[in-house]
Amino acid sequence: MTVLASQVSDWQHLSFQARRHILDQALQSAALKDAVFYAQVHRLWTHFNQVSATWDQTLVLPGPTGESNELYLTARGLSFIYAEKNAAESLILGQIFASLLCGNSVLCCLPEHKELLQQVEQVLTQAKLPAGVFTPAQVEDLAQALQRPELRLMQAVLTEPTQVIPWCQRLAQGTQVLVPLIYEAYPDGRTLLMPDYLLKLVTERTRTINTTAVGGNATLLELGSRHD
């Protein structure tokens, strides 16, 4: 269950576009393409790509002259993904690929979907996902995983909405970061298809640069002399 910090960091720093390219290759592998659930996975993947299409661009925010202010989206960090026994495989793959697309590293515990887990690991490795970004976990590791200080998210595919609260309670017992539960409890995948879903897997960052410190305020000077 070792997560390699350096590779994880590299993965986080890749652009959405670059990650999309690697994950696309994984999804194109014959092992997944031939699966019965592939059409649904493809549908989810298309949706995620549409939602995140502009996420490599920073949002330039208005403000005083002589300063640049930008907002951008980046990975939250380590996500623990779990699925219940009868969870649809397409939804599990949806959670995994969404999280990876957002730059998170994934600890994946699928006690009832061992074959799928193996398959996913294999296709991701073949697509050259950096080592340590996707790590299978055993159910015995669950308690320990939920206590990891670097854990930032828990994603789950549940079959019963009644399971949501027990999971929340379990997460609330943690002593570190407040780890939110991002779950899909409908077999038709409606939650994953919501426009807000992917945003829950990323974090926002703001970058403010005093541009006058490195070379004066050329923009303002230009405005000062611009013709009306």
């Binding site: 974090t203 970058r207 403010t208 005093n210």
Partner: peptide
Amino acid sequence: VGNTYINR
């Protein structure tokens, strides 16, 4: 971090 401030 959430907010980074450079040269200020």
